[in-house]
């Protein structure tokens, strides 16, 4: 399969610089309505995570790891994490963002962030 680009857009307030993800119609800090679209940059730091066993309808896996990580330019985003045991992960560790199928909804592949732990 072709290597996929991280297809996420974050929004930086033109007035005060606050970075938002996902989109808001008004800035959470200053209520500004104009944003520059920015791409998440570099690797990310893991903020928190959970190994989830009781999965919603549409998942065949026994479990998934989901977490939130912060990119080098301040974008924070949820994503799945490639891991088999919580012991493999530590808060604050560096994870490498990749883009892939995270879920199938109504027979269609849905793409999203998949973080790969790197020490």
């Amino acid at each position: 399969m072709m290597k996929q680009q991280i297809n996420i857009v974050a929004y930086q307030c033109k007035a005060c610089g606050k970075v938002h993800f996902p989109f808001h119609d008004r800035c959470l800090s200053c209520k500004g309505r104009e944003f520059d679209e920015i791409k998440p940059q570099g690797n990310a730091k893991l903020i928190t995570f959970s190994q989830i066993f009781n999965l919603p309808w549409g998942f065949d896996n026994r479990f998934i790891f989901v977490g939130v990580a912060e990119f080098e330019n301040g974008v924070k985003a949820m994503g799945q994490i490639t891991a088999n045991d919580p012991g493999e992960l530590k808060l604050g560790m560096t994870v490498k963002p990749t883009w892939g199928v995270v879920r199938v909804i109504g027979g269609e592949d849905v793409y999203g962030l998949i973080y790969k732990p790197i020490q």
Binding site: L55, F59, V66, M78, R103
Partner: peptide, 10 residues
């Protein structure tokens, strides 16, 4: 930003 990842309330 969240639902697609399979996040649940637990």
């Amino acid at each position: 930003a969240e639902y697609i990842y399979g996040i649940t309330l637990p």
